[in-house]
Amino acid sequence: MAAPVSLQVEFGGGAELLFDGVKKHQVTLPCQPEPWDIRSLLKWIKQNLLKERPELFIQGESVRPGILVLINEADWELMGELDYKLQDQDNVLFISTLHGG
């Protein structure tokens, strides 16, 4: 059983518009049998934070192309992407580079 994980989840570049315009979210992920990774965080965001039009943020089990992910201010491509195991006090930033719509 993994312990609860506290994170700072941030949205920028217009992605915040999908989250009531709120850029910074303090998030506590509940205990679950498996350790939390980005894949399960995205599922949690879809169920708990994303108010409308999830297709503008999520595609399949990942983020929509054009949305960048930074884990503790580093490119998630260096961190294992969806498989990155979240740790307490991690900072996860999603930046949209999409122009419109």
């Binding site: 054009g66 960048l68 580079t97």
Partner: peptide, 10 residues
């Protein structure tokens, strides 16, 4: 766009 976004954050 990625380079620009990262530059702006960093």
């Amino acid at each position: 766009a990625k380079e620009i976004a990262f530059y702006n954050v960093f």
